[in-house]
Simulated assay, not measured.
Amino acid sequence: MTNESLDTSNAPRKRWLAVLARADTPALEQAAAALGELPPLEHVRPSEPGMVMLRGRVGGTGDAFNLGEATVTRCALRVGAGALGVGYALGRDKRKAELIALFDALLQDPARQASIQRDVVDMLAGEQAARRDAAGRSAAASKVEFFTMVRGEA
């Protein structure tokens, strides 16, 4: 089995986890409140902060090196008898990791996936893209063009 086959089978889940991880907690809370009544939640791994080592590469292609550490909070929970959802959030926000795990578990349910994908993930992804575009336009507006004048020989 190649890495490419692993990437294609988990691509939708990777996308929704990335979108959920970039979302802020109030937006996730609001989306969770709109879900209505849920089956009981079983905390397989309660939210807990920990550390991860960040790795970097010089120029993106050089040898890997340890850049530093970052705090990450993780959670794993099961909604009813459904799939296991996992959530990882940068920082110490336990509630955010729990909400990510909740949505991950619900998105693995074929009966709920389309509606949650449309109403939560796609909406959050659109908001995140708009913020990225606005930041890009703001940076481009302050771009300075430099030029060099070459002095001729006299």
Score class of each variant (00 low, 15 high):
23 A>F: 13
24 D>M: 08
25 T>G: 02
26 P>Q: 07
28 L>P: 04
30 Q>G: 01
30 Q>H: 12
30 Q>T: 13
31 A>T: 05
31 A>D: 03
32 A>R: 03
33 A>G: 15
36 G>M: 13
38 L>T: 11
39 P>H: 03
44 V>W: 01
46 P>D: 12
46 P>C: 01
47 S>L: 04
49 P>V: 07
49 P>Q: 12
50 G>Y: 03
50 G>A: 09
52 V>E: 00
52 V>R: 10
54 L>E: 10
54 L>T: 11
54 L>I: 15
55 R>W: 13
56 G>L: 08
57 R>T: 06
58 V>P: 10
59 G>V: 08
59 G>E: 04
60 G>V: 05
61 T>N: 06
62 G>Q: 03
63 D>L: 11
64 A>P: 08
65 F>R: 02
66 N>P: 06
67 L>K: 01
72 V>I: 14
73 T>A: 02
75 C>S: 00
75 C>A: 00
77 L>D: 08
78 R>F: 02
78 R>N: 05
78 R>E: 11
78 R>A: 12
78 R>S: 01
82 G>A: 07
83 A>W: 04
83 A>I: 07
85 G>K: 00
89 A>W: 08
89 A>Y: 11
90 L>C: 05
91 G>R: 08
91 G>P: 02
92 R>Y: 09
92 R>C: 09
92 R>E: 15
95 R>Y: 05
95 R>P: 04
100 I>Q: 00
102 L>K: 01
102 L>Y: 02
103 F>D: 01
103 F>Y: 10
104 D>A: 04
108 Q>I: 12
108 Q>L: 14
109 D>R: 02
110 P>L: 05
112 R>M: 14
112 R>N: 01
114 A>N: 08
116 I>P: 01
116 I>L: 13
117 Q>M: 15
117 Q>Y: 10
118 R>E: 13
118 R>Y: 10
120 V>K: 00
120 V>W: 03
123 M>C: 09
124 L>E: 10
124 L>W: 06
125 A>H: 09
127 E>H: 04
128 Q>V: 11
131 R>I: 14
132 R>I: 08
135 A>E: 12
135 A>H: 06
137 R>D: 10
138 S>A: 15
139 A>E: 09
140 A>H: 08
140 A>C: 04
143 K>S: 12
145 E>D: 09
146 F>N: 11
